[in-house]
Design a protein around this nucleic acid. Structure first.
Lengths: 204, 204
DNA sequence: TCTGAGCGTTGATCTACATCAATGCTTTGT
DNA sequence: ACAAAGCATTGATGTAGATCAACGCTCAGA
């Protein structure tokens, strides 16, 4: 159950066997079936979750009932509503399993205790947040200054295999902040650019 | 010169007098006059800067020559291109003083040494990044799912005093990802909502 | 085996915001 | 004290992407 977590940890920090053993005790394993929720709007986000297996999405619902996906999390990634987790205020997000998932949950009190007893985790989470911040800033810049087509093209360039195969197109659209119709049209345009249309070539 | 920095540090971590004294040695004070640059596109971001005094902006220039502001930093805030600082790749950002500034610069090697000698700073920077991430995520969500008017209204609600007084309107527009013309029109609309137009009331 | 829901696609129309252009006010530098 | 640059505003027009509506395909469940 902890294989992937420790693999990821070792990329950033070196833990002794002692520390590994101890750190396990702070996590609670949890399985989630497709369409089950890790967090629902209005609830306080009690855990940050490490994804050992599966795929989740985090989304909001606006006053018109439209879903807006703002994050996906695969194997090897963390997911939570950082704001609600930190402040204990009710969350505006829903976090839902899109596939059957195996998660490792870390509660606030466990996190505090873990950081206290194994200070190396301060560094690990700092680096994690740093990378997350860089990625989020990049998305923000591109959402403010690029067209929908540019954003889609970059997304499938950065993530050519995973995203299109495991995530339905209308959810990708939502993640990019556009409608499914627009994404469909963008894809058609891109395809016709790559393989230019051969004009009717009627003989005679 | 270090008053504000230590005030801010104390909000997150407790330092001994010894540690305070030591930590000073890692920073390089730097004054910047209005319109001078802390970082220019193409250069590697060598420092994260704490702003003791003044105001800076971070922006990109796209292929059409348009500026896109993505961050402001006032007294008490940090500013840098995290990505370039981390990877040592050339930056895509320009960081420019909008007012005369007093900064405290921290180089990568100083940061590493400081984190090594005063591990409490791991926690400090982790918390800093966490808050920054939460704020950036909020901006991302709003840029993807709200109208320009909603974004502007929220901005002046969150920051009613500082922003409009120290930052010219066309830079606020750029920060919001809209044109100066659009922001001007939005402001007119908001004003006419607050103080509804009195219809011509010609007697007779 | 049928049925209904979910999904992607396409067309027609609408709208928020961009772009282009002009004007007048304020600030800056010499 | 003056010229020049920077800035906010307003109007006319253009456009990326949203919305509304319809259609066919696929697949899960009775």
């Amino acid at each position: 159950m902890f294989e992937l977590l420790f693999q990821k940890l070792e990329e950033k920090i070196k833990l002794t066997e002692e520390e590994k053993k101890l750190s396990r005790s702070f996590f609670v394993p949890k399985k989630l079936r497709k369409k089950q929720y890790l967090l629902q709007e209005g609830d306080v986000c009690k855990y940050v979750a490490f994804v050992e297996k599966g795929l989740l999405r985090s989304y909001t619902i606006n006053d018109k009932g439209q879903e807006h996906i703002n994050q996906f999390a695969f194997e090897g990634w963390w997911i939570a509503d950082q704001f609600s987790f930190l402040t204990r205020e009710p969350s505006k997000y829903n976090i839902e399993a899109m596939e059957d998932c195996e998660l490792l949950l870390l509660s606030k009190s466990s996190e505090d205790e873990m950081l206290d007893k194994i200070p190396k985790f301060e560094r690990y989470f700092r680096i994690l947040l740093q990378n997350n911040l860089i990625a989020t800033q990049k998305r923000l810049v591109s959402s403010l200054s690029q067209t929908a087509e540019e954003r889609y093209s970059e997304l499938i360039q950065d993530c050519p295999t995973t995203l299109p195969h495991r995530i339905p197109q209308h959810m990708l659209a939502s993640f990019l902040g556009i409608t499914p119709e627009t994404l469909s049209r963008i894809r058609r345009q891109i395809i016709s650019k790559k393989a230019p249309h051969i004009e009717d070539n009627v003989q005679g």
